[in-house]
Nucleic acid binder design. Structure first.
Lengths: 197, 197
DNA sequence: CTCCTAACCTACCGGCCGGTAAGTTTTTAG
DNA sequence: CTAAAAACTTACCGGCCGGTAGGTTAGGAG
C-alpha cells in the first residue's frame, strides 16, 4: 500500500525502467543496475535469468500499469466518438509526460521473439479498440467514404505515438494543445461533415 | 552512369546501408562490412575514421538521394493542398517500399551529437515544408479553427512515418491504399468543409 | 626502371559486458 | 537451537568488437 516496492523483483524492475530510459538498454550494463540496487551483478542474476528477461518484465509491468488502464477507460466510454477522443488525448498526455514510453517503443526490438510477440499483443489491444470503434462508426453511416478502418486506426496511433520523436515538454511544449489538435484532425478527418458534435 | 559505385567509399556506404538494415547497426560488426566488401577490417578503416562516421555517411547519402528529392518535388507543386497530398503519398510509398528508411529512423540515436544535428536538419526540411503549407492554407482562410500548424505538421509526419512499425508489404499490405487513406484523413481533418477539392 | 602514394593486410590490443561457479551470510521454518 | 533454503558476494571466464601499429602490394607518374 505504500510507495515502496514489495520485493526485490519489483524494485529492480522499477530501477531498470529508470536506467533504461535515461541511458538506453544497450548502454546500461547489468553492473549499473546492480549498483543502483546496492547489490552486485551476481546478486541481480539471482532474481533474473538474463538481461533480456529483465527488459521483458520492464515492458510488461509498465504497459500493464500505464497503457492497459488507459485502454480500459476508453473502452468503458459508451459513445464511439468520445471513445476515440478519450483514448487519443490520454495517450498523448501519457507519452508527453513519461519518457519511458519512448524507451519501451525503441528498445522492444531487443526482446526475444516470444517476448516480443507477447508485448506486441498488449499494444495491439489499443489498436483493436480503435479499429473496432471506427468500424462501429462506419456501420452507423457516420464515416466518410474511403476510410479504411485498419489504416485509419494505425493513422491515429502513429500521429500520436510519433510525439516521442519531437515533443519536448522541457521546452514549452503544450501537451494539451497537441492532444486537442491531433484528436480534432483525426475525428474531422474520418467523420462525415454532419456527424461531428 | 552505370549501377556500379564510383569508388570504395560509395560502395562501402551502399553495403553498410544494406547490412545495417538487415541486421541493425549494433549487430553489424565492422568485420561483417569488411567481409561483404572482400576486404579486412583494417582495409575498411583506411577509408572511414570510425564506425559512427560510416553510419553518418549512410544517413546523409540515403536521405539526400531518397528524401530530399521527394521534398523538392512537393515544393514545386503550386497548389497548397496538392503539395501536402504529393508529399504524404510519396513519403508513404517510400517508407513502404524501402525498409532502410526505418533503419535510419531507429539507428539515428547512435550518431554523435553534431552528426545527429545535421541529419535532423535534413529531416526537418520536410517538416518545415508541411508547416509552411499549412500556414499558407490558414492565411487563405481554408483551415478549420484550432489547427495548430506545428502540431498538425507533426501529425501528418507521424501518421505516415509510423508505418515503419506495422506495415508489412510481404503480407498483402496495400501501400497505395494506406497513402490515400491517411492523406484523405489529414486533409479532411485540417480543411474547412467547403475547401476540399 | 624508380619512386611515391594510396590501398590494403597481418596481427594484435584493450576494454567492456553478459553470465557463472562456488562459497558466505541472512532469513525462515519447525 | 537447528537446518535448510533464499539472498547474496567474490572472483572469474570467454567472447566479441572497435580500433590500430606497422608492414606489404598495386598502380600511376616521370
Amino acid at each position: 500500500m505504500n510507495g515502496q516496492p514489495a520485493d526485490r523483483v519489483e524494485e529492480t524492475v522499477a530501477i531498470a525502467l529508470r536506467l533504461f530510459t535515461e541511458r538506453g538498454y544497450d548502454n546500461t550494463p547489468m553492473s549499473a543496475v546492480a549498483d543502483a540496487l546496492g547489490l552486485t551483478k551476481a546478486g541481480v542474476y539471482h532474481h533474473f535469468e538474463s538481461k533480456e528477461h529483465l527488459l521483458y518484465l520492464v515492458h510488461k509491468h509498465t504497459l500493464e500499469s500505464q497503457l492497459v488502464p488507459l485502454i480500459e477507460q476508453a473502452e468503458a466510454e459508451p459513445d464511439a466518438g468520445m471513445r476515440i477522443r478519450r483514448f487519443m488525448i490520454d495517450y498523448v498526455l501519457l507519452l508527453a509526460r513519461d519518457p519511458s514510453a519512448a524507451m519501451l517503443i525503441n528498445e522492444s526490438r531487443r526482446l526475444a521473439p516470444h517476448h516480443l510477440a507477447e508485448i506486441r499483443g498488449i499494444w495491439r489491444r489499443g489498436y483493436r479498440m480503435l479499429r473496432g470503434t471506427i468500424i462501429e462508426l462506419q456501420q452507423r453511416g457516420l464515416c466518410r467514404e474511403g476510410v479504411d478502418p485498419v489504416y485509419a486506426a494505425f493513422g491515429a496511433i502513429g500521429m500520436t505515438s510519433w510525439i516521442i520523436h519531437w515533443f519536448d515538454r522541457a521546452r514549452g511544449g503544450n501537451a494539451d494543445a497537441v492532444a486537442r489538435t491531433m484528436c480534432g484532425i483525426f475525428l474531422d478527418g474520418i467523420l462525415k461533415d454532419g456527424a461531428r458534435p
